[in-house]
């Protein structure tokens, strides 16, 4: 046996894992009867469908040829995700201005071509734009800096 379509194989496994997780959680919610269907019934039915689809997709990958999984480049995705999470962390504690600075500073590293001076300029522009447009003009309740 040889996996001939790795993308499908992994996609199938992913779907099976998700489905099993949801079934495990949903089985606690009760399935009820046809008149009063319980909160667990529908998710379990959908999960079962998802699991069987996942199974077919992954089994099929031994028969049908497909393209290999492209190489994951760690740098862009990992840095992007960290930058987003960091934005949340900083926004909660230090407000929008610091959050933008932190995010752009970290996020810029996702591209190898970022240049420090440009990034600094970008931070200034984005901070000014966000403060003026979102907070001042649109009046959105976003804290700009930590509450004194």
């Amino acid at each position: 046996m040889r996996i001939r379509s790795p993308k499908d194989f992994w996609a199938g496994l992913f779907f099976i894992a998700v489905a099993l997780g949801f079934i495990a959680l949903a089985s606690r919610y009760g399935t009820g009867n046809m008149h009063r269907m319980g909160p667990g019934l529908f998710p379990i039915l959908v999960s079962m469908l998802l699991a069987s689809l996942g199974l077919i997709v992954s089994l099929r990958s031994f028969v049908i040829d497909g393209s290999p999984v492209p190489r994951f480049q760690l740098r862009p995705i990992a840095i992007s995700l960290s930058a987003i999470a960091l934005f949340g962390l900083v926004l909660a504690r230090l407000g929008l201005l610091a959050a933008i600075a932190a995010m752009v500073l970290v996020g810029a590293a996702a591209s190898r071509e970022s240049r420090p001076l440009e990034t600094a300029g970008l931070i200034v522009v984005l901070i000014a734009f966000s403060a003026v447009v979102f907070v001042w003009l649109l009046g959105l309740p976003i804290p700009l800096w930590p509450d004194a």
Binding site: S80, A83, I84, F87, G88, L91, L96, A99, I100, M103, V104, G107, A108, A110, S111, E113, S114, R115, E118, T119, L122, L126, S130, F134, I142
Partner: peptide, 15 residues
């Protein structure tokens, strides 16, 4: 250049 655009996109997405 994209290196300037993408951080801005991130910021607007998060906001």
């Amino acid at each position: 250049p994209y290196r300037l655009l993408f951080p801005a996109i991130f910021v607007f997405c998060c906001i």
